[in-house]
């Protein structure tokens, strides 16, 4: 008995490197096997889609602010791609831009893919305005004039000469703003954008930042939220059900490694606690003697 307790005690002080190894295996092994999980759409995901549908129905263009770089690509790329498929299958015009410099290159790549798949005309069906600095000022300023912050698009064409921008002077002229972000920009969009100009905001964010945004979802300042890879997987399932895409994508593929990593985390926590109580009992035993 006391030998087990001793072993557990030792486990509770496990070296960090063993923990790292467990997590590495938990993430890597499912990626090497064909196991795939499915996530059924939650109420939140359905709500996001309803809000996007409303924006599509209005007939106005949708603005998409892409704010994630290579670091969070695994989590947010599937979310962005799903939203893009949703917009472009419904033949809605979309205006893309970014307030984070590292999002520029990936956004170009995704849009090129969409252009090919849906036969889109640049400048008419969609446009990429590129990057603007000073995010808070830009968010607030775009409520009155987009041209002030984006004089020209990513290819250097003045935005006045871009057909899709003809009737879009400010954010008030679009049906919704969709922000796919790994940082705190959604919160800033609420504070500097929605609070001042009152438009519909939809957000796709990392799971870490989701808890920050729930309060705004409940107040209605945020119309829809897709939080992290899990919500991305749910949205993929929904889009397959709706016939927007043929098969689920990377978010769904990510569910298995994510689940196994979470289970190993639980196991580690359990071991840590077992060790903690074993030590407490041992200490008590020593004290009694």
């Amino acid at each position: 008995m006391s030998r087990i307790a001793m072993a557990l005690t030792r486990l509770s002080n496990l070296d960090r490197r063993w923990i790292f190894l467990v997590i590495l295996l938990a993430v890597a092994l499912p990626l090497l096997t064909p196991v795939e999980f499915r996530a059924s759409p939650s109420d939140e995901t359905l709500r996001f889609d309803d809000a996007l549908q409303k924006a599509i129905d209005s007939g106005k263009p949708i603005m998409v602010d892409v704010d994630f770089g290579p670091q969070t690509m695994a989590e947010l790329e599937p979310v962005l791609l799903a939203v893009m498929h949703r917009i472009f299958t419904s033949k809605t015009k979309a205006i893309f831009f970014t307030l984070s410099p590292d999002a520029t290159a990936p956004t170009r790549r995704y849009l090129a893919r969409m252009e090919k798949q849906y036969n889109l005309n640049y400048g008419e069906d969609y446009v990429f305005l590129g990057y603007a600095s000073s995010f808070a000022y830009t968010m607030y300023g775009m409520g009155t004039s987009i041209e002030t912050y984006f004089h020209s698009d990513d290819r250097g064409t003045p935005i006045r000469r871009i057909p899709i921008m003809a009737n879009v002077e400010s954010i008030k002229d679009v049906s919704a703003v969709v922000n796919i972000a790994s940082n705190a920009f959604p919160k800033f969009w609420i504070q500097y954008g929605v609070a001042a100009f009152g438009f519909d905001l939809l957000v796709g964010c990392t799971a870490v930042n989701a808890t920050d945004l729930y309060p705004y979802l409940q107040t209605g300042q945020l119309k829809g939220l897709l939080a992290g890879g899990r919500a991305g997987a749910e949205y993929e399932t929904l889009l397959v059900e709706k016939g927007v895409i043929e098969k689920t994508g990377d978010a769904t593929r990510g569910l298995a490694p994510q689940s196994l990593a979470l289970l190993s985390l639980l196991a580690l926590i359990a071991v840590g606690n077992a060790g903690y109580f074993a030590r407490k009992r041992l200490d008590k035993g020593v004290g009694a003697r």
Partner: peptide, 26 residues
């Protein structure tokens, strides 16, 4: 890009080690 992505992926390991130390029923 790969350097930063590597730094970010370290979070998965650090979350695990932080959780392992912090979540004790003290």
């Amino acid at each position: 890009t790969p350097i930063e992505a590597t730094m970010f992926s370290l979070l998965a390991f650090f979350v695990a080690s932080a959780a392992f130390r912090a979540f004790r029923a003290r």
